[in-house]
Write a protein that binds this DNA or RNA. Structure first.
Length: 484
RNA sequence: GGUUCCGUAGCAAAGUGGCUAUGCAGAGGUCUGCAAAACCUUUUACAGCGGUUCGAAUCCGCUCGGAACCUCCA
């Protein structure tokens, strides 16, 4: 099936025509590993995951997916340098070597990040690489030299800047975002003046070294300017090395549209001569209980916070997929509970189909076309789910004949290759819970009372069982007991 | 101040000119001694005010409310 996505470059939904037939290359802006990822971050990575899974399952492409790890920036440097309260015992010893401290600090959170994405159903094995910025410094330096050679960069006060004025004479700046330089907020302009650069709009490619901060030697234009890479240059260089340019799709949160992605386009084209990506896809933010997520409002959650509270990460994944990626998603605890019930309804259908041994048939091909058609058009997960529920509402999975059963299971397997929140298989046997003897004895006494139609006694005994923390449910000719 | 986007039932979330979205919750029912579970049926919408149109949640204008970006926040 052909895929189409909303492209921020064209501001319209466009059909995907991969640069290389049969292969889709995707670069996703990954985390800055200065802390645990929060659920807003997770939404961005989840979007990229569903995008790449859609390309695999529905597009039938061989997917080359890269998600970078930004392991050097102001925050990681600040937090790793002082060795204060931000320094965790799991990071090892704080030393006098800034590079060692930075690596120890960021690798701790990188490991947490890999745990978190696994928890929410993102497979590390789906990525061909998860490059760390600090491992690609030479490639970044090469790119900066290229930009400089072509006249779009200059060295000033120990740093290297992109010369936007020169670039704007050669190409468009503002492909993703209409930039109105005359109307930058005044406060920002004042702040920007603190930098030594020719124009307020010039951005840094290479930041000159400061005392006590990690730095790398860098020879450019015959001089050595020790320092570290600017933020935007990381993605330009790593995407070129790992995917080559141009590649197909670049993903990230809406906040990265400008300046990060705009600058990335300018740099890549200034240095390599081509724009990095055909498609730029941006996910919207999430809010929590209708409010912007922020630490001061007390509604700031990491995935780890939520799973520690007993929430199932798959319910969080499913809940996020019940909204379109390009609209603001309102995260609520009620919403997670509702998502769980909805998810379980589909799961029950899957179990029914698995054990089906009936005579009915169903048009699985039509269902597949309907559901995948929605996903193939800008990954419209809510519409796809509506199709699924509408079908399930009318279906009796347990009554399918052998042929329909196999076709449906094949479809569900594919579907779960994208949603990744279900178990395609047999309904698990009831876990053999150990019910204490006295509870079993109470239940037996109740059954006898019930048989003798002494319902007052039966209800009293059931109340005792409930009070002891067990739930008794009657069945046709007996009962079940479970904890809770 | 500039540039964008959004406001849909109790909650969440699709729909962008006529046609039941969907999920959770609620209500009624089947089953049951009663519950629970399951299943069936079903109520409640388009922020407000104008306009365009045979017809507007959908297009246009204004008002109100919310969000993002405007130099390193997903």
């Amino acid at each position: 099936m052909r895929l189409s996505f909303y492209n921020t470059l064209s501001k319209s939904i466009q059909e995907l025509n991969p640069v290389k037939d049969g292969t889709v290359s995707i670069y996703s802006c990954g985390p800055t590993v200065y802390d645990r990822a929060h659920i807003g971050n997770m939404r961005a990575f989840l979007f990229a995951d569903v995008l790449q899974r859609t390309a695999r399952v529905i597009g039938g492409y061989d997917v080359r997916w890269v998600m970078n790890i930004t392991d050097i920036d102001d925050k990681t440097i600040r937090n790793s340098t002082d060795g204060g309260e931000r320094w965790h015992s799991g990071m090892g010893k704080h030393t006098s070597d800034p590079k060692h401290n930075l690596a120890a600090y960021t690798q701790y959170y990188e490991a947490r990040f890999i745990e978190d994405i696994a928890t929410i159903g993102i497979l590390r094995s789906h990525m061909i690489a998860m490059p760390r910025a600090t491992d690609y410094i030479p490639a970044m330096q090469d790119l900066i030299r290229l930009i400089h050679q072509r006249g779009f960069a200059y060295v000033a006060d120990g740093s290297v800047y992109f010369n936007l004025t020169a670039w704007q004479r050669a190409d468009t700046y503002g492909k993703l975002f209409k930039v109105d330089a005359e109307n930058f907020r005044e406060g920002v302009r004042i702040d920007a003046d603190e930098y030594e650069r020719d124009s307020v709009s010039d951005f840094v490619l290479w930041k000159g070294a400061k005392d006590g901060e990690p730095s790398w030697d860098f020879e450019i234009d015959g001089v050595n300017v020790p320092g570290r890479p600017g933020w935007h240059i990381e993605c330009s260089a790593m995407s070129k090395v790992l995917l080559d340019v141009p590649f197909d799709i670049h993903t990230g949160g809406v906040d990265l549209r400008f300046p990060h992605h705009e600058d990335e386009i300018a740099q890549s084209k200034a240095g390599y001569g081509v724009e990095p990506a055909q498609f730029w896809c941006h996910n919207e933010f999430l809010e929590v209980e209708g409010k912007k997520m922020s630490k001061s409002l007390g509604n700031f959650f990491t995935l780890h916070d939520l799973t520690s509270q007993g929430l199932d990460a798959l319910d969080i994944r499913f809940a996020m997929l019940s909204a379109h990626y390009a609209s603001v998603y309102n995260f609520t605890f009620d919403g997670i509970a509702a998502a769980r019930k909805a998810r379980m309804r589909v799961q029950e259908f899957i179990y029914d189909v698995w054990s089906a041994a009936g005579t009915q048939s169903a048009d699985v091909a039509a269902l597949r076309d309907a559901v995948f058609g929605e996903l193939a058009t800008d990954i419209h997960t809510p519409k796809a789910l509506a199709q699924i529920f509408s079908f399930i509402n009318k279906a009796d999975g347990a009554s399918y004949n052998a042929e329909t059963r196999l076709a449906m299971l094949a479809f569900l397997e594919e579907l779960n290759g994208i949603f990744a929140v279900w178990h395609i298989g047999e309904r698990p046997a009831e876990e053999a819970e150990v019910i204490p003897e006295f509870i079993l004895a109470l239940a037996e006494r109740r059954l006898n009372a019930k048989k003798q139609r002494d319902f007052a006694a039966a209800d009293a005994l059931r109340a005792e069982i409930t009070a002891a923390g067990y739930t008794l449910k009657d069945t046709k000719d007996g009962y079940t007991i479970e904890r809770g």
